[in-house]
Design a protein around this nucleic acid. Structure first.
Lengths: 384, 384
DNA sequence: GTAAAATCTGAATCTGTTC
DNA sequence: GGAACAGATTCAGATTTTA
C-alpha cells in the first residue's frame, strides 16, 4: 500500500459485530480516511475487488462562455475551477475511461457504481461505462426542486442532473435494497426520478470568508438514498472525487465505511472537519429519515396538451358572464384584452387583483357547466 | 429526388400565406408524405439544409442479428461477453453516427434536432451527437406519470425517458419559443423535466387483432410540446423513424409540415390512416404568446418627438435612487456623467454591464411611478 | 418581538442586429 | 469579422433587513 497523505482524524465508533455479516476487507484498506492525491494514482494503490460501492461525481467539463449576469444585474458565481477544464472531448474521454477502468478493478464483483453528471458530460460517461464492461441498471434523474433559472430565456431551465447506476458486468450480482427503497417512498416502488432540493442553507459548507467551500456540493439526501439503496452497514464506499466529503459524511451517519480521494488540500481540510463532527445514527433510527419532497405541479397547459380541452374551445365563468377562448399554448384570449394565463385573464375580466383560474373558468360537458379544476383533479387521479 | 414509395394520401389544408413568413423550401421536398425506405437511404435523397427540425426516436435494440447493425468486420464468434458487447456497441455507434450525419446535412443551419431514448442507447446517442458537431441545448426528461412497474423488484422503476435537444453547431442560431413554453407552464419558465402520461387508452393505436400497432408509440402530448417549443407554423419537421406517425399527426394538427421515413409497411399503413383523419387546429387557436423580440423596435426618441414625454422632465428608477433628465433628442442627462441612451445611462448609474432602460427608468403620471415602457406599449397598441 | 419585505444564491455550455 | 448598441431576461428557498 502506498503512502497515504492523510490518515483518519476522527475514528468513528466501530461497527458492532453483526452475526451474519461477513466483512472481507483487506486489513490494510485505508477505510474512513481521505487520500489526498490524483484519483487514478490513488486508486492504483488499492487492491483488486476491495470496495462494495463507488460513488463518483467527476468534473462535468462545463464549457462556459463569458460572465453571465442576472436580470437584476448580479453576476452568476460560476464554476470556473481549473479542475473542470479539459482541452477536448477526446481528452475528457481518456480521463473518464482511465478512472473508470481503475474503479472497476477495485470494485468487488458484486459491487456497484454510481456516477453523477449533467448533459455536458453524462453521455460520454455513460458510453464509457458501457464500453468498459459495466452493466447499466438504471439511470436516475435528480429533479431539483429549486434550480437556478435560465436568466436569458434561451433554453429550458436546466433543472436536473443524471446519475447512472451500474453493476460490474451483465451477469454480476449486485445489492438492491428493494424493501428499504419502497418503505422510503410511502410503500410505492422507488422510481428512477427523485425530487430533492439542491444543497443550500446550513448544509452548504462555507470557507472562512463565508464563500461556498466547494462550487458543486451535493445534498446529503441524495447520498442518503443512494447508500441506503445498494449498501449495507459495514460496507466500504469509495468516492474518488471526494470534494467536501458528502459521501463520507453520509456513509459515517449510516454506519458504512468510506474511502475518499481528493486532490485539493482545501477540500480535504473541509471534508475532514465535516466528517469528524458527524455522528452515526442510532440503529433504530436508520430505517427512515424525513425529507422534503416537492412533487411537480400541473399547469393548465398540460391539460390542453393532453387533449382534455381542445385549443379553440370556449370557457365561461359559472354565470356565463364572461367568455374566453383556449389557445394552443394554454393561454386564454378574451375580447378587448391581451392574452394570458387562466389566472390573469380571470382577474382581468373581473377587474380583480387576482383570481384562481381553476375554479373561475368553466367548460361544458354533457350539457353541464364544470370548473376546469375538474379536469385537473381527473388528471391527478389518473396519474397518481 | 429519388422514387418515393408512398405519396401524399390525404392532402392537408394549405398553410395560408403569412405576410412576413418567408418559407424557403425546395419545390421538390416531399412534405406531408411518408417515404417508405431505410432512413439513411431516404435521407440521402433529401437536399442539404432543407428541414427546420428533426425529431427522432431511433431503435435501441442492441441485439445483433438484424440487418441494421451488423458489424462491417464480419462475424465474431467464440469471443467472450465483453468483446461481443463491444462489437454490438460499435455497430450501434456506426449506425447512429451514419444517420446523425445525414440528418445534420439535411438540417437547416438554424434548425434543431431532438432524439429520444432510454439508458440502453441514449448515452451512445448523446456522445455521437457531440462528436458529429451538434451542440446540446438541453437534455429533457420525460417523467412518465404511469410507468410500468419493475415486477421483480430488482431495480428502480424505470419511470422516464430522455430527449436530447441540439442546435446544428455551437455558434448556430436556433428557434426557442420561450414565451410559448412559459405560457404553457402557468407563467413559469418551462423546466427540463416534463411530467406526462404514457401513450395509452384511445390514443394507443391497435392493429386488426387488437394488439398494439407499435411497441413504443409516443404520446402526442410529448410531440405537441416539442413542436410548440422550437418550430413555427409552416416549418418542415422530419422524423426519420416515423413508426405510427405521432410526429406527423401532431405536426398536422399544429399546422407544421412534415416528412416521415419508415421502413415497415405495416407502420406506414397505420400512420397514413392516422394522419389522414387528423384535423389542423383553428388558426385562432394557433396564435400564441408572441416573443418580445419580434415586436417592432421603437426608439425612445420617438416617444419624446411625439410629445408623450416632454424634454426637460425627470426620470427616476423605481426606488427613486437615481435621477436623469430627458433631452430633446431622446438622450438622458444625469449628474456626473455624459449624456447617452436610456440603456447606457441606466447601466452607468448602477455600475452594471447593461440595462434595459425601458423597464429601469420611470416617470410620474397621476402621482404614480410608471416605467417608460408603458409609453412604448401604448404607442405600439395605438399604431398596430 | 414579530411579521413583512428586501436581498442573496444555486454545476449555466444564457442575445440579436447593425455598422 | 469585429465592435457597438438596443434591449430582453429569474424561481425557490434561505437569509437579512426593515416596519
Amino acid at each position: 500500500m502506498g503512502v497515504l497523505k492523510r490518515i483518519e482524524t476522527a475514528p468513528l465508533p466501530l461497527i458492532p459485530a453483526r452475526p451474519k455479516l461477513v466483512v472481507s476487507v483487506p486489513h490494510d484498506l485505508p477505510v474512513n480516511q481521505i487520500i489526498q492525491d490524483d484519483c487514478i494514482a490513488a486508486m492504483a494503490r488499492l487492491p483488486d475487488r476491495s470496495v462494495d460501492m463507488i460513488f463518483a461525481d467527476p468534473p462535468y467539463n462545463l464549457q462556459l462562455g463569458g460572465d453571465l449576469y442576472r436580470p437584476e444585474g448580479g453576476r452568476v458565481d460560476a464554476v470556473d475551477d481549473h479542475w473542470d477544464k479539459f482541452e477536448t472531448f477526446a481528452a475528457y474521454d481518456r480521463f473518464t475511461r482511465d478512472w473508470l477502468r481503475e474503479a472497476r478493478r477495485i470494485l468487488k464483483d458484486d459491487g456497484s457504481i454510481w456516477v453523477i453528471g449533467s448533459y455536458h458530460n453524462i453521455f460520454r460517461v455513460g458510453a464509457a461505462l458501457q464500453d468498459e464492461g459495466y452493466w447499466i441498471l438504471n439511470d436516475i434523474v435528480w429533479r431539483k426542486a429549486n434550480p437556478m433559472p435560465n436568466f436569458k430565456g434561451t433554453r429550458f431551465t436546466n433543472a436536473h442532473e443524471t446519475m447512472i447506476w451500474c453493476a460490474k458486468s451483465e451477469k454480476a450480482r449486485y445489492r438492491f435494497n428493494y424493501r428499504v427503497m419502497k418503505a422510503l417512498n410511502d410503500d410505492l416502488q422507488m422510481r428512477s426520478d427523485w425530487s430533492l432540493p439542491i444543497c443550500s442553507g446550513a448544509e452548504r459548507l462555507k470557507d472562512d470568508d463565508g464563500h461556498k467551500a466547494h462550487p458543486t456540493q451535493k445534498p446529503e439526501a441524495l447520498l442518503y438514498r443512494v447508500l441506503l439503496a445498494c449498501t449495507q452497514p459495514g460496507d466500504v464506499v469509495l468516492d474518488p472525487f471526494f470534494g467536501t466529503g458528502t459521501t463520507g459524511a453520509v456513509a459515517a451517519r449510516l454506519r458504512r465505511r468510506w474511502i475518499g480521494i481528493e486532490r485539493e488540500s482545501a477540500y480535504v481540510k473541509v471534508a475532514e472537519a465535516r466528517i469528524a463532527s458527524t455522528l452515526p445514527l442510532d440503529e433504530s433510527a436508520m430505517v427512515l429519515m424525513p425529507e422534503k419532497r416537492a412533487a411537480p405541479r400541473v399547469a393548465f397547459g398540460v391539460i390542453v396538451e393532453l387533449g382534455h380541452l381542445a385549443p379553440g374551445c370556449v370557457l365561461t365563468d359559472a354565470k356565463r358572464r364572461w367568455r374566453a377562448e383556449v389557445r394552443a399554448d394554454g393561454t386564454l384570449l378574451t375580447e378587448g384584452a391581451a392574452a394570458g394565463s387562466i389566472h390573469k385573464i380571470g382577474a382581468a375580466v373581473q377587474g380583480a387583483p387576482s383570481c384562481n383560474g381553476w375554479t373561475f373558468w368553466h367548460y361544458e360537458e354533457a350539457g353541464v357547466l364544470l370548473p376546469i379544476d375538474t379536469l385537473r383533479q381527473r388528471h391527478l387521479a389518473a396519474t397518481a
